[in-house]
């Protein structure tokens, strides 16, 4: 239970992205729509996975990915779980088009079903990760009980990890001026927003192996930091998506 199994062709990592595509994702962040910032960060994370999956001239499928966009419904953007090699062959990610509401409970529920199907066959693999990106309050049921159930699912490598990226300007009492020097959200970090506090309860502790990978990429997150990122700027959103792909590889 220490999150050290390496993602390999025989033991690929499973990452499920839950992307909020509610209408508020049309709002601007650094002169771009939030949804476009997310699309770019997700594309960069996919590129990072390709980078970490090439050996020689070959792309080894070390990652398996599902992308669920959600509004008042859930949209499976890849049509099931796809290997990183299949995604690279497609070339680009499907468009993310903002819709109306933001029912994250439905998205977590679908992720739970995927995990229930997959976990029995993942006993030698790295612990799966669910990366949730949202910019507001859920409009449906409370997602926390479902997220808690997901976090209690496990493989020998560790419990399923849940990460939250919360795009909001009102999350932290102090602005984060240097994302690369930022220590992360710790269990006792005060958060300004009630929804952010809920997401904090739904965020796993950052495994040391992931933290080491991020330190190698020059991010200074503290031991004990949570897998929760305040998306106050595009770089922090990007760190969040990079965190999701920080499964150890050789």
């Amino acid at each position: 239970m220490n999150y050290t199994i390496q993602a390999s062709q025989r033991t690929p990592a499973l990452i499920i992205y839950l992307i909020d595509i509610s209408a508020s994702m049309n709002m601007l962040m650094e002169d771009k729509r939030r949804i476009d910032v997310v699309y770019e960060a997700l594309s960069l994370a996919i590129r990072q996975m390709v980078f970490r999956s090439t050996k020689g001239n070959r792309l080894t499928p070390r990652y398996r990915i599902a992308i669920l966009a959600y509004s008042d419904d859930v949209y499976d953007l890849l049509g099931g779980i796809k290997g990183i090699d299949e995604i690279a062959a497609i070339g680009s990610l499907p468009d993310l088009t903002p819709k109306r509401f933001s029912d994250s409970a439905k998205a977590f529920s679908q992720a739970e079903k995927i995990l229930q199907m997959e976990i029995p066959n993942m006993q030698d693999c790295p612990a799966p990760l669910v990366c949730h990106m949202t910019d507001g309050v859920s409009t449906g049921e409370d997602p926390e009980p479902i997220a808690r159930r997901i976090m209690s699912m496990s493989v020998p490598d560790g419990n399923v990890l849940v990460e939250n990226i919360f795009i909001s300007d009102h999350l932290m009492s102090q602005p984060i001026t240097e994302p690369r020097r930022w220590k992360g959200i710790l269990p006792d970090t005060p958060l300004e927003d009630e929804h952010a506090r809920k997401l904090k309860m739904m965020s796993s502790a950052l495994p040391e192996s992931y933290r080491e990978m991020l330190v190698e990429a020059d991010y200074q997150l503290s031991p004990g930091a949570l897998m929760m990122l305040p998306g106050t700027c595009s770089e922090l959103v990007s760190i969040g998506f990079q965190m999701s792909a920080a499964t150890p590889v050789r």
Binding site: R47, V50, F51, T54, N57, A88, A89, G91
Partner: peptide, 11 residues
């Protein structure tokens, strides 16, 4: 594939 090619060229 283009993405793989770009990554390999970067490497």
């Amino acid at each position: 594939p283009k993405l793989l090619r770009e990554v390999l060229e970067e490497k």
